[in-house]
Amino acid sequence: MTRAKSGRPVDDITLDAVRGGDVSVDDIRIDPSTLEHQAEVAASHGNPQLAANFRRAAELSVLPDDLVLAIYEALRPRRSTGVQLEQIARDLEARDAPLNAALVREAAQAYLARGLLA
């Protein structure tokens, strides 16, 4: 049985629950464990890159919207210094998001090489 990020079983998210005002945003958010499951499915269907994406997504699924939007913005060309990107990477590590931290560090390296740091 699939559970939402809130921990609530998806079958409990009924129209009656909506009527009663008893459905929160986290009741319609995907849970990291579900994304891990989807990663396994993708890997077994010939797409390890899609699996890697779902694993990065699992880490991001517990972060607030604003933070996710802010990191995306910081990764755009010439938005951040190397130091700023390193801070984001450390912050991601602290939030148990090592895969995304690695992605940000790799970006910092590539941006340095291609002159795309702020």
Partner: peptide
């Protein structure tokens, strides 16, 4: 790619951001 205001890393992150919200 850069004129489009993105890099492969920002796009990869965006891709994961969508998946992270299902």
């Amino acid at each position: 790619f850069i004129d489009g205001d993105d890099t492969p890393w920002s796009k990869a992150f965006l891709t994961s951001a969508y998946a992270s919200r299902g």
